[in-house]
């Protein structure tokens, strides 16, 4: 699967409610009333989908702040952003 361009700056959808939890977060889509639960790293990535951080920035931050991953940090960020995009939660390239 092709990687997302490292210079891409993802932006989260404005109307989605983000509620932090002690071990992750909830995303709530008010129009469809769909709820997503995020683990801590996905929640961290979501916070940084603010249009200011590039994919490369997010990978660097994730490497610095999280130690345990099933995937390599780069693959984890790519995979989560792609999932957000597929669900229409963040902007596409």
């Amino acid at each position: 699967m092709p990687e997302i361009d490292n210079k891409f700056r993802p932006i989260s959808n404005d109307n989605i409610l983000f509620k932090p939890l002690s071990d992750g977060a909830i995303l709530f889509e008010p129009d469809s009333e769909v709820v997503h639960t995020l683990n801590p790293s996905a929640a961290y990535i979501w916070i940084h989908c603010d249009g200011n951080h590039t994919i490369s920035d997010i990978i660097t931050l994730i490497k610095k702040n999280f130690s345990e991953f099933e995937l390599q940090p780069k693959d984890a960020v790519n995979s989560i952003i792609k999932e957000f995009q597929a669900l229409g939660l963040v902007s596409s390239e």
């Binding site: 002690s22 992750g24 977060a25 909830i26």
Partner: peptide
């Protein structure tokens, strides 16, 4: 159980999920 797992389990066992709207999100939190 962590909060995210608890949240997912709560929603699964709710008889009246229609109550779960934007304004009730804070109640669940």
């Amino acid at each position: 159980l962590g909060q995210t797992a608890a949240f997912a389990n709560l929603l699964k066992q709710l008889y009246n999920p229609q109550l779960f709207k934007r304004n009730s999100l804070d109640h669940l939190l």
